[in-house]
Each structure stands twice: as structure tokens, then as C-alpha cells.
């Protein structure tokens, strides 16, 4: 066979990255019912933010010092850009018909891509991203890169943080309240505009972390890397049940596994070998999505639309 454990691990790692991005889609959707199609680009700008910090540090810096600073750079870049887009593009359309902010999101997505393409130094072709020292490690026949460890740690810590934040803090409660009934939340004294900004900022922070994780794993970043990845992450959010943060993570993991495993194992089914290439893996991912939504239209962990979040 084809080293099943290795493929499982690879799938889960890809999935964890999707999950980190999917969280951003899901939080924002849960609160303003906007599918922020520019979120993939927020992820991309995070990666470029981290790269800028790395380039600014000078070549002698140890990666152990550089990584925290790059993470900070990524989170700050993503968050600032996300908050700005909310302020400038989405807030003026808060009471407009649903379609207007949706189209705007697509516009923001293209704008951000083109800004990076046009103005970031030599970003017209892929830029090399630094890699982590150490590794690879062999754990029971599975090959693990140091970047993989970074992804796991980042995903686990982020999810735990988010769960803690939403469930137990005052701001988290305000977010839940706003997601369930914005008008009542306002009357309870919650500044819902502020809650919406926090939702965008939180999602962007996770996207920034995912940007660094992506760069470390694949060794290069590109101005259009957020487009397809964002689309998969959005799919993951829907698969897990949009509006549910645990669902986003679960959806990411399922999607990553499906993409990785189908790319390899479909060929083992007699007569299916031509459907097993890398490019077919996306098809299988969406087949799974459709199958899941046929049985559970609200997604794996989603609740009825009437009481999301």
C-alpha cells in the first residue's frame, strides 16, 4: 500500500491549515451573515506580512527569534487589512441587500491580490519563504517536517484560545448574543459595530497564522495563493456547519483528509485510476461536500439556520 499513516498525517496537516482559515469565514458569517470572499486574500497578506518582517530582520537572525516576530507581523498585517476592509467596504453596506456586500467582497478580494501583485517587490512570481531549522523527524515510519509541528501547535492552540474566548469572556458572550439576535443585543447595551470589528479581527488573526504555516510548509508564497485556498477553507466552513467554530476546524480536517487520500487511493479502485490525479482531488472534495449536505444541509456540526452560533 501507499504508507497510509503518512497520507493521513499529510491530510490532517493540510486540513488544519484549512481549518485555521475557515474559522475566519465562520465567525464573520455567524455574526453578519456575510461570506467574506476576501478572506483568502487576508490569509495571503498575512503571509506577505510575515515575509516582510523576515526580510527586515537581516540574514543572521535565528529562526527561533524570527518566527514569533513573523507571526506577529502576519497577525498585525491581516488584522489591519481586515479591519480596514470592514470599515471601508462592508460597513457602509450594512443595511444594503445581501448581494451588495457579497459582490463587494469579491471586489475586495481582487483588489488585494492586485495590490500585492503590483506593489510588493517582485511578487509577480512566487517568493521564497524561509523554512524552519531541524527535522525531518521519523516517527513510526511517518516523515514529519518541523513546519508540520508548527501547524499542529498553531491549530490546536488557536482552537483552544477561540473556544475559551467565545465561551467565557465578556466580549465572547457579546459575540454569541450578537450572532443570535443583533437587535436584542443592541438593546442589552452591546455595541454591535464593535463586535463585528472584533469578529473580523479574530478571523484575520487566524488567517495570518495560517499564512505563516502555509509559507513554512511549502517554502514559497504567491499573490494568488489565497484564492483557491480560501475557496477550500470556505468549503470546509460550510462542510462543518457555517457559523460554528468547531465545525470550521472539523470541516477543514475532513476536507484535507479527503483531498489527500482520494488523490492516492482512488487509483486502487479498479477502473477509477484516471480519477486519482491531484487535480481530481478537488472534485472528490466537493463530491464529499455535496454528499454531506444532502444528508445534513446544515453541515456536520451546524444547527438550524434559525439559531446559528
Amino acid at each position: 500500500m501507499h504508507e497510509l499513516p503518512q497520507n493521513l498525517v499529510n491530510g490532517l496537516l493540510l486540513g488544519a491549515t484549512y481549518g485555521l482559515i475557515a474559522v475566519g469565514y465562520t465567525i464573520v458569517y455567524g455574526i453578519v451573515q456575510l461570506i467574506n470572499f476576501a478572506h483568502g486574500e487576508i490569509f495571503m497578506t498575512g503571509a506577505f506580512g510575515a515575509l516582510s518582517v523576515y526580510l527586515g530582520l537581516g540574514s543572521g537572525t535565528s529562526m527561533w527569534i524570527a518566527i514569533p516576530l513573523m507571526l506577529l507581523g502576519a497577525i498585525v498585517t491581516s488584522t489591519v487589512i481586515a479591519v480596514l476592509t470592514e470599515r471601508l467596504a462592508y460597513r457602509p453596506l450594512r443595511n444594503a441587500p445581501r448581494l451588495a456586500p457579497l459582490i463587494t467582497a469579491i471586489g475586495v478580494s481582487i483588489t488585494l491580490q492586485q495590490l500585492v501583485w503590483g506593489f510588493y517587490p517582485s511578487a509577480k512570481s512566487p517568493r521564497v519563504f524561509p523554512s524552519l531549522p531541524g527535522g525531518p523527524f521519523h516517527v513510526g515510519g511517518v516523515l514529519i517536517q518541523s513546519a508540520d509541528i508548527f501547524v499542529v501547535v498553531a491549530a490546536v492552540l488557536s482552537t483552544l484560545f477561540l473556544a475559551y474566548f467565545v465561551r467565557t469572556t465578556r466580549t465572547g458572550r457579546a459575540m454569541q448574543a450578537t450572532a443570535q439576535d443583533p437587535d436584542t443585543a443592541k438593546l442589552m447595551g452591546i455595541n454591535t459595530d464593535r463586535v463585528i470589528v472584533i469578529a473580523f479581527a479574530l478571523g484575520a488573526g487566524f488567517a495570518g497564522i495560517a499564512g505563516v504555516a502555509w509559507g513554512l510548509r511549502y517554502g514559497e508564497i504567491k499573490f494568488d495563493m489565497g484564492f483557491l485556498t480560501g475557496l477550500y477553507a470556505f468549503t470546509a466552513a460550510v462542510l462543518g456547519g457555517i457559523g460554528n467554530i468547531y465545525g470550521a476546524m472539523l470541516g477543514g480536517l475532513v476536507l484535507g483528509l479527503v483531498q489527500n487520500l482520494t488523490a492516492i487511493y482512488i487509483a486502487d479502485i479498479p477502473g477509477m485510476s484516471q480519477f486519482s490525479s491531484q487535480s481530481w482531488s478537488s472534485v472528490w472534495a466537493f463530491v464529499i461536500l455535496i454528499l454531506v449536505l444532502m444528508v445534513r444541509p446544515q453541515g456536520l456540526l451546524g444547527e438550524r439556520v434559525a439559531d446559528r452560533a
Binding site: 458572550r173 457579546a174 454569541q176 448574543a177 447595551g189 439559531d307 452560533a309
Partner: peptide, 22 residues
């Protein structure tokens, strides 16, 4: 118009939003 998916206590805590700072 309660927050149906939150507990009774959490609903009241949301009510305290303006009287707490964090």
C-alpha cells in the same frame, strides 16, 4: 427575545454588558 442558545446565567451576564469593563 432571549438568547435561546445561551444559559439562563449567560443571558443575565449579557445584560450586565454595559456595567462591566474588560
Amino acid at each position: 427575545r432571549l438568547f435561546h442558545n445561551m444559559t439562563v446565567l449567560e443571558n443575565v451576564l449579557v445584560g450586565r454588558h454595559t456595567r462591566t469593563k474588560e
